[in-house]
Design a protein around this nucleic acid. Sequence first.
DNA 1: GATGAATGAGGATTCATTCAT
DNA 2: AATGAATGAATCCTCATTCAT
Lengths: 217, 217, 217, 217
Amino acid sequence: MPGPLPYPALSAPAPSQTRERILDVAEALFADQGFAGTSVRDIAAAAGLTAASLYNHFDGKEALYAAVLERGIRPLVLLMQSHTGGGPADETAAELVGHVMEHLRRRPHLPRLIQHEALTGGSHLARLARDWVRPLLHYGTTEMKREPSPWEADEFPLVIAAWIHLLLGHFTMAPLFREVLDEDPLAPPLLERQTRFLQKLARILATATPRRRASSK
Amino acid sequence: MPGPLPYPALSAPAPSQTRERILDVAEALFADQGFAGTSVRDIAAAAGLTAASLYNHFDGKEALYAAVLERGIRPLVLLMQSHTGGGPADETAAELVGHVMEHLRRRPHLPRLIQHEALTGGSHLARLARDWVRPLLHYGTTEMKREPSPWEADEFPLVIAAWIHLLLGHFTMAPLFREVLDEDPLAPPLLERQTRFLQKLARILATATPRRRASSK
Amino acid sequence: MPGPLPYPALSAPAPSQTRERILDVAEALFADQGFAGTSVRDIAAAAGLTAASLYNHFDGKEALYAAVLERGIRPLVLLMQSHTGGGPADETAAELVGHVMEHLRRRPHLPRLIQHEALTGGSHLARLARDWVRPLLHYGTTEMKREPSPWEADEFPLVIAAWIHLLLGHFTMAPLFREVLDEDPLAPPLLERQTRFLQKLARILATATPRRRASSK
Amino acid sequence: MPGPLPYPALSAPAPSQTRERILDVAEALFADQGFAGTSVRDIAAAAGLTAASLYNHFDGKEALYAAVLERGIRPLVLLMQSHTGGGPADETAAELVGHVMEHLRRRPHLPRLIQHEALTGGSHLARLARDWVRPLLHYGTTEMKREPSPWEADEFPLVIAAWIHLLLGHFTMAPLFREVLDEDPLAPPLLERQTRFLQKLARILATATPRRRASSK
DNA sequence: GATGAATGAGGATTCATTCAT
DNA sequence: AATGAATGAATCCTCATTCAT
């Protein structure tokens, strides 16, 4: 049932099929090769255009990149927001993991786009941090405060970060593990196992006895 | 306390101070901007040379990159090998985490180099997989078989991968989290906390009840 | 009387004035300085372009060179083919000499292009040999078999080669002889004398008594 | 009497074995690829040296080229001089052809060096013309005046030039004809046949009826 | 909307040459 | 006499971008 673009722009004014096609191929190429490693000409060619024609749709390479990032990250932000009102912690965490994995499964370029941007410290990092990481941090911290957990308060951000690493890492490291596993990390079977694995981990951590520091307190 | 190059090359034919300097700056620049985003001229300039002079030391950009990768990864491989003979699982895991973190602390560019390579599916991935990931996978799997753990056999590779994501992610995502945390993820205090956090996680997982199959089935 | 390009390409997809201009100046420069001695920038400049612009018309220096060679040699090949049906040998030889000289007079760069290619053993030699020398060899040999001549069968190829040396040599050696003669070898008067001289030689050889080897036979 | 390098060293003042080796490989490379197409580094490497070391023996690329040319052409000039006093024309011509061919057989790079220089109109053309072509022209003209021949006076230079084209062409065109003949033009058998062919041609021309002016006018 | 053509800036690499060792 | 290291200039070519059509 879901199309290639799960979050259908909500109310876009006819997204100009060509524009969308450019965004698609640009997303794939930027995710593969990063901003510096991708040429406008290659993007245009992959979209069936000349480089010159691409400038009828975007103001330049940088603007195109921004659009790709924006289009990719907005749904992720929305997904986070839609989970801010939660239930019992042990379920919510596993649920959220499931939903995020489901989202990334449909947009497998996204983690690599984010990772590229994080690595090179690009100019969109600030927005990424503000719109995506900060809310997530806030939500996660709030959640962890509500329920007992093995973690100290000053570890909360590290826990959130760890979940991001686990979720994205599976995608960003896929080419490396593809070489060494028998399966493609991005193929459905392994994606499902990874999802269940992470959910299991979430449950283990949720039920882990927070008995430490009993003496230190 | 130790110098910047803890693993003294083991078999260098005369480190040629300039060559080493080039490798240093190239490592930093490649880690920051990736292969495509880094220009030979910039590397040379950062090393106090002309681009032409750099070619007296390396056969080209690609060869320089290979040398950087080689120099960076070899110690990591050796570190893995030196831990293949382990003690009680619960200690070994935390210990290994500590040692790896200590190593990465001294060579903070390494995780980003690896991540860049993994993202772009570069030509050195195969070597990376063979020399580093595969042994690690083998060692970890063996270790997990020896002791009870919450994980099924088919989850073992995912556990290893997860640890890699956790260890490297802290470094590769540092620029992103720097924007949102009050601290620099690569500064000593947070590095130490991350180390202890991961070790704690290791212990929690090691002692988690392996209630699998018994109840779920 | 006709223009500079007597053989109107026969099947050009739109000569694109600029492209033709580039070919013209490239032909002159390659003929003067050879492939290695000619820079793309110089060609572009001579055509009133930037080097970058030249790449909108040709895929690279090598491709441009190939196009120059192709454009130069094709008419020569066609000229040869149009003379394959001959009359009495003594006339045909002199006639052919006249036609070839007339052709070379209009395209004086051609012999030097060919000579450069032959000297450096370039990658287009094989094509040159196949399309131009081999048919010429075949035709000449056939012709010589039909009429008595002073030459033995195993000398036929050497005779053909000799004619090539005589025809091209006048052009390829022009700069050298310009220094020592009072006239320019490529100026009309001397070109005409050279033509008549070669035709006279052709007639002399055609009528030379083949009395040799009378005893050996 | 002669210079430092007439034929095989006869009495050289220990020509610095290395210098000679450089000259040898430079001659071969310049003959193959021309001046522009040959790099100092390649020459040095072929001589078993570094480019820097080559500068201990020659003042630079241009000087080395000049030395190669000088060393190659001087013997040719001497050869010409030694034949200035001739006997009966019909023998002298064939004899001279034989001697020149013999000389070129031993120094097969020479024709290509000369041809390269002639093609590119290099800076050594003047010397070449003065020392080699002009005497040859003078000698040949004188010789032709002494005996009846089919040629008019104003054709004399063309006859000389033709002989040069025939003699050198066999060598400069060798790569082209190698592709199309069954034999290597520079291998002994074909070299001998070419020599006999040219000598035969010389005799034919020498005995051709000088019916000029008488009938044609 | 699309494109061919043009271009300045910059990409990696090679070149001939110098100089201290 | 030989070399490693350095370099300015030049090599071919790609880049992102513009503009008239």
